[in-house]
């Protein structure tokens, strides 16, 4: 740590915590809503801590019966929807990251015709607004039988994620000095061996970052799930919208679902975060 004056350090800390509070407050309030009775939600001044916590919202949303003092059997039964979200996010992330890693290594290292144009071509597929794609996709999926299936949604999410994932991963591979590959080539290693044993471990941080982005996208994606699924499955963002009805909005239930939905995403990021260490090439080269 570089030495700095105490007053400046204190001012910096206060400012930093202020910014953090600004970002965290909505989250905190949302969580309190999940534990409030409907009549308390819109109280003025807003109740931050002085409310009677209740699990009613969760109970209604997930149909849990806790300790017998709550009425069991929720009317929304959202547990399976949470499961749908997890399956889709995990597998579409896996698929996108696998393909993107292989593709971007090739783009970064191999010489082939027009490779410099590839990246912009790949990116161009994301320049169209998704709405323009959603309706045609509905008909295509209907014809090939992917409508309302896990595979269908996983595929479309992976495809949506690929361009950015490739771009991101490529920049990570580009940062790994070519001499490292070349040194391994001279020592007799095959391309695949180098990729798996030398380059991939070095790109861990990049893979983790890419995975986080893909996961979050899939976890929050709305449009494609809405159009490409019917009764078989629905993810959290889409079912959240069902709490908005013509007779009013079930704020408490929506917040409960939101809080529950944050948990898996948070867990995933936490798991991956460990890999987000920077400076992985440290020590490989002369400074």
């Amino acid at each position: 740590m570089i030495v700095q004056s105490r007053s400046r350090a204190a001012a910096r800390a206060v400012l930093a915590w202020g910014v953090v509070a600004l970002f965290v407050f909505p989250l905190f309030f949302w969580i309190t809503v999940a534990f409030k009775e409907a009549r308390e939600i819109f109280d003025l001044p807003p109740r931050l801590a002085n409310f009677t916590p209740t699990l009613n919202n969760f109970n209604e949303v997930f149909g849990l019966s806790l300790g017998g003092n709550l009425v069991g059997g929720g009317n929304f039964n959202m547990g399976p929807r949470l499961w749908d979200s997890i399956v889709i996010a995990v597998f579409s992330t896996l698929l996108a990251v696998t393909i993107a890693t292989l593709a971007s290594y090739a783009l970064s290292r191999m010489k082939f015709r027009a490779r410099h144009h590839y990246v912009s071509w790949v990116l161009s597929t994301r320049m169209m607004p998704p709405v323009a794609v959603a309706i045609p996709m509905f008909f295509i999926y209907k014809d090939i039988g992917l409508l309302d299936s896990y595979l269908g949604v996983i595929l479309i999410h992976a495809v949506m994620n690929l361009p950015l994932a490739v771009l991101l991963m490529k920049s990570f591979f580009d940062d790994i000095p070519l001499e490292i590959d070349e040194s391994a080539v001279i020592d007799g290693a095959s391309r695949w061996y180098i990729f798996r044993r030398v380059v991939l471990p070095m790109a861990k941080g990049g893979i983790a970052a890419t995975a986080v982005l893909c996961f979050i996208f899939s976890w929050t994606e709305f449009l494609f799930v809405l159009t490409l699924t019917q009764t078989g499955l629905k993810t959290v963002p889409v079912v959240s919208s069902t709490f908005v009805t013509s007779t009013g909005t079930a704020w408490g239930n929506m917040a409960a679902l939101g809080v529950a939905a944050m948990a898996p995403a948070f867990l995933f990021v936490l798991l991956v975060q460990k890999q987000l260490v920077r400076g992985l090439t440290l020590g490989s080269l002369k400074q």
Binding site: E179, A184, V185, G188, V198, P201, S284
Partner: peptide, 19 residues
């Protein structure tokens, strides 16, 4: 190809495998 030339090389930057 390089692997069939029976050559060992030390690079200008050392190119060690950091992991």
């Amino acid at each position: 190809p390089p692997k069939d030339r029976d050559i060992a090389m030390v690079f200008q930057n050392y190119a060690l495998y950091p992991t």
